[in-house]
Write a protein that binds this DNA or RNA. Sequence first.
DNA 1: GCGACAG
DNA 2: ATCTTGTCGC
Length: 237
Amino acid sequence: MSPPEDWIRPANLDAARAAQHEIAVGVEFEDRLPEAPALVAGVDCAGAARGAPDRVRAMAVLLSAEARSRPLATGLAEGAPAFPYIPGFLGFREIPFVLEAVNKLPARPDLIVVDGHGISHPRGCGIATHLGVVLDLPTIGVAKSILVGRVEGMLGMEAGSTAPLVWKGRRIATALRSRRGVQPLFVSTGHRVSQETAVRLVMEWLAGYRLPEPTRLADRLAGEARKAAGNDAPALF
DNA sequence: GCGACAG
DNA sequence: ATCTTGTCGC
């Protein structure tokens, strides 16, 4: 069953806001995925270089638990976004392309790690949650900065340190110091993955870098694809 | 009204 | 997100 058109391409901001409220109702906060996901995908988007027309390039990478750093496959999708970037509405800008990229993968992953927030969002519908509900697949949100809320308590400097991200008295994500000294990651439930499991899986898929492999590779490959497509800053003439 | 504000 | 060389620290 395909989701409502407004969940993907709403005509305006009001319709988009209404869609987020609807999507948030369908979120599953409990685990409904393999304890040890064998196929994990990572998705991220890159924009066009400054000066170039507004474009979005989505990259989806498929990894296996055994060969975590060697993508089994990748899926690429690109185009002109129908939505501008508005904090709180990122999904409507990137998801059309992310869906296309994920559909190009040869298999349905057991889990998708998304660059951005899950439920740690004003309406509980960040891009990771949005994507998870639309695809009905387990997703985890891994953001590099906060959208809403504040870290409660002290976050240790050591790798593995965590502290809750709280908003309106609710714990919405976990600040995670993935490497000692680096800025923390904000890990949240996307869909069908509990907060605790989300943090556990992100840590398990870390490979010495700040970002977990699925997202790190998607980010890197999206950037390389941009260059390869000559979508960089135009020559001086 | 003012400030904050994923990518 | 993107613009960008060198530089500081483990």
